[in-house]
């Protein structure tokens, strides 16, 4: 297993380099001009000289190859440049906001897993009964309800029933766990619902597939009782696709956070991204896109390792 982990981690390095290169060109290949967009955002009349001066100040007038070399050298020192808006280092801007988003993401994942595995299992075991139908309706709704609207409904419900609003402002969980959780549980629920819906559907279909396998019939024929068949033979095998979906959705959680953080006024990565987009702060956008890509790669590697742990055939081949 250890050998497999090491081999797998070495494979990550070239992918990371490739992604860094791709992000650099992704932002520059588009036909717009960030400087023009930024300066003329509100229909302001800006002279050509101002635009050229701004371009010079940002180092955008240098040849592409020089910009690229600077960028790649910077990356080796975690230097992502400076935010065009605040002048702060991009790495620092991201670092301060990272803990909130990470915590909401982890909480949403826990919510999703704890809802999806039991509900998906129930839905598959009691297939085509009212239990199955209710679970499926719940799951399909989760895909249609926009997470920001769900967040607003949660706030509306809290106000209507308890006349209470979660406090604005973030306290670290290590300082005041109660205040922290009572503020972050709501955004976690509103992004977690969609997440749980996707995972529940996958859990159900994966389990239904596994239950048709020969080895399940064999186990039953040998007289193994139902609960043990489910736990030892069916669930473990059905977990493989579920792990993939949970991992992929975790990597994509930033998409939900972008809107949810706005609803709950959380100062996290998602809100930072929205602000950066609204202000045309493209060094910050570049840093954030890179972060999202790196997160995607790391999550994928973790999923691969989980796969190898769940299914020994994978690490042996």
């Amino acid at each position: 297993m250890l050998g497999y982990i090491i081999r797998r981690l070495f494979l990550v390095i070239p992918t990371l380099v490739g992604v860094a290169v791709a992000v650099f060109f992704l932002i520059r290949v588009m036909p717009g001009d960030v400087v023009v967009v930024k300066l003329r955002a509100d229909g302001a009349q800006v002279t050509e000289e101002t635009i050229q001066a701004e371009r010079k100040r940002l180092g955008l007038d240098k040849p592409l190859i020089v910009q690229f070399t600077d960028y790649m050298i910077g990356l080796t020192r975690f230097d992502l440049g400076k935010s065009l808006w605040t002048g702060q280092s991009v790495f620092e801007e991201i670092r301060i906001r990272f803990p909130v988003s990470l915590q909401v993401a982890i909480m949403a994942t826990l919510i999703a897993v704890f809802i999806a595995i039991p509900l998906g299992t129930l839905s598959a075991v009691y297939r085509d009964t009212w239990i199955d139908y209710s679970v499926r309706v719940l799951a399909v709704s989760g895909l249609a309800i926009p997470s920001f609207w769900l967040g607003m409904l949660i706030i509306l419900g809290l106000l209507a029933f308890f006349n209470w609003l979660p406090k604005i402002g973030y306290v670290s969980i290590f300082e005041d766990p109660v205040a922290n959780l009572s503020a972050l549980i709501w955004p976690a629920l509103s992004v977690g619902y969609r997440y749980a819906a996707v995972a529940t559907r996958m859990m159900r279909s994966a389990l239904l597939e596994v239950m048709r396998e020969d080895y399940i019939r064999t186990a039953r024929a040998k007289g193994v009782y139902q609960k043990l068949v489910m736990r030892r033979h069916a669930l473990r095998n059905a977990m493989l696709p579920v792990v993939t979906v949970v991992g992929l959705e975790f990597a994509f959680l930033i998409g939900g956070l972008v809107v949810t953080e706005q609803v709950f006024n959380l100062n996290g990565i998602g809100k930072l991204f929205v602000d950066a987009t609204a202000r045309g702060d493209f060094t910050l956008i570049q840093g954030l896109v890179l972060l999202i890509a790196v997160n995607f790669i790391l999550v994928n590697s973790v999923v691969d390792l989980l796969y190898a742990w769940l299914d020994p055939r994978i690490r042996l081949s």
Partner: peptide, 20 residues
């Protein structure tokens, strides 16, 4: 492959930022 590694809203926001 690279484009599929991003949530759709992230790609859309990058386009909004660059194109105005």
């Amino acid at each position: 492959d690279i484009m599929l590694a991003f949530p759709i809203i992230v790609l859309a926001m990058v386009v909004v930022a660059v194109l105005g």
